[in-house]
Design a protein around this nucleic acid. Structure first.
Lengths: 340, 340
DNA sequence: CGAAAAAGCCAAAGCGCTTTGGAAGACTCT
DNA sequence: AGAGTCTTCCAAAGCGCTTTGGCTTTTTCG
């Protein structure tokens, strides 16, 4: 059942039927009702390919997925996706993942924009002066950044969490507990979130006349193994820290294992605070010693990004509004006063 | 730059240009070269929306993503996606995720087929007599099932691993080591993979005149917490098992924690074998006691599914061929002889 | 009451591609 | 040389929708 048939069966023109269905004003309400009615009764659904060719609207949002044999997709992604999908579903939006060579995403962005494959895109894990953000901005497609970039001469729309504030609070707590040597096991140091977290820790230390020594900060991919290695290196070196801030729950698994392997204990010898993105399958309260965390649901962020994308597509949201969500500091058993 | 302009500038008809570019035989090789050349020089790329309207081909593969506030997307998904994306990239395929109410995926499947939104779909985590498989089969869109369903009066194409064989081998090893009371901490018991794994364990036990008692098998969502709870329940009950087979590395984290909490040790008191889907961020050799595993890269499966989908779309693959991949049994420190 | 404005509808022209049904010219064969 | 066969190209008809421009008919208003 296509528009032509429907129009014919109603003894109306395609124009009128189309307008009736799309809510244009120049059609009699009585007629509109008839049309809507017939459309529903016959289960008419406009062919998206045709509509798309005519209007350019796709009803899809895009994400360029970096891939490659040596590229690991972050497990956070799936949780973000849960939120995004949940919102998208309620608005009949689909998500198209365009895989791209991790080293050349530009081609793919250009393609999906030139081909009008999606109505909007989002960008995740941005870095300062992220080229993707600059590119997408000039290409003129609506977009939202999940996270923040920095150092542009233009503003853009983003949804981020207060990474600096979160780690500032975490560090402050540890300092208040008497810790003087803090360490930071961070994610990829080229990404903004990691920079912000480090800044938060440094600021808290500085406020007490302390510093974060270079040996005590490491930036690694967020795997269990890297958490383990970093911790061993930290605790076996001179000036071992008495407290660790860690950027992910997965790395925290490795931290805990390393501490145990060294015959030390949490929080007796080392206090630990990790960032929790709220995975359903790994929860900080279930660690052998319940983990103190900075907590922010990445799933909610996904839903929010979808919501904003939808708003931008329909023209409800404009401008370069950035929003920063506060992060909860949840204190559990993994922190204690500094050892004597 | 569209076809019309390109044709005009070459003083050829759109027909000829189109045919030249799409490799049809009825065009002079000399002409074809000229066309290809001009196309490349001017960066001509056929508009996919138009092509799509004309041919029905989309260059996209689809996946219906169950969503909802209480629906958690499996972290395995992201690893599968890595492989799928990696292959899709090299073949200029995009993946469209259509979020659906987890309790009504049928509507979404019907929509994406009726609207011709994708050229093929894949289905994951199937159950016996899975309705999605039956539906997609009747809808007539090319598809591949990742995993297996059962109990249909038709055949279909799938890529699965030998879950039964894997857990049969694992159980056999444990039995050989003298274990008599095995337990199975399984995934969702409604899914085929879980059924097959249980069958594998039972078969191995039966071969030695043993049985898997009901109390010793549990089917739960694969979270760390569920692994913990199941293990406590198992080990604190009467007839506590001396060996555990576990369906995921994430649950195995909980198993290890529970064993430790009970003051027991692996493999001294309990042997443990888990299934490893090969996550980059959590590796069995890095468990406090290196974990024996049944190993199969879910990422490779993703790539394979993409490959087969691409083959089906282009007509290179037909028929209902199912393939079952063998699973490696990797023995590490977590298994030992049964305690006296 | 007649002109101007508004309401309601339609035919047809896109959107940019593929594909059908020729047609013109070159070549082969008897 | 004429008939038949390739080869190579083209005009035009879709694909199913939206939208422009215009045409009636009805309503409004001085």
């Amino acid at each position: 059942m296509n528009l032509k048939q429907l129009a014919h069966m109603l003894a109306l023109s395609q124009t009128t039927v189309s307008r009736a269905l799309n809510g244009y004003p120049e059609v009699n309400e009585e007629t509109r009702r008839r049309v809507m009615d017939a459309a529903k009764r016959h289960g008419y659904r406009p062919n998206p390919s045709a509509r798309r060719l005519a209007t350019g609207k796709t009803g899809m949002i895009g994400y360029v997925l970096p891939t490659g044999a040596s590229v690991d997709i972050d497990p956070h992604f799936v949780e973000f996706l849960s939120g995004l999908g949940d919102y998208a579903r309620s608005h009949e939006l689909d998500l198209v993942l365009s895989p791209a060579d991790a080293d050349d995403q530009e081609t793919t962005y250009r393609r999906i924009v030139a081909n009008r494959q999606v109505d909007a895109v989002y960008i995740s894990s941005p870095r300062p002066a992220d080229r993707r953000v600059a590119l997408v901005n000039t290409l003129g497609i609506p977009f939202i950044v999940h996270g923040r970039s920095e150092g542009f001469d233009f503003d853009y729309a983003f949804t981020d969490i207060d990474n600096e504030g979160a780690f500032h609070e975490a560090a402050r707590l540890l300092i208040q507990l008497g810790h003087r040597r803090l360490a930071l096991i961070n994610g990829d140091g080229r990404e903004t979130f990691a920079i912000h977290r480090e800044r938060g820790v440094r600021r808290a230390l500085a406020a007490s006349g302390l510093t974060l020594i270079e040996r005590h900060v490491c930036s690694v991919d967020m795997t269990e193994e890297n958490g383990y290695r970093a911790t061993r290196r930290l605790l076996e070196g001179d000036d071992a820290p008495t407290a660790i801030a860690c950027s992910s729950l997965i790395m925290a698994l490795g931290v805990v294992r390393a501490v145990r392997d060294l015959g030390l204990s949490i929080p007796g010898d080392v206090s630990l605070i990790a960032h929790d993105d709220v995975f359903p399958w790994l929860r900080p309260e279930n660690f052998s010693v319940p983990l103190s965390t900075t907590r922010s649901s990445i799933r909610l962020a996904g839903a929010r990004v979808a919501e904003r994308l939808a708003a931008r597509i329909s023209g409800l949201e404009e401008g370069a509004r950035g929003e920063v969500w506060p992060v909860d500091l949840v204190v559990r058993g993994s922190v204690a006063g500094a050892p004597a």
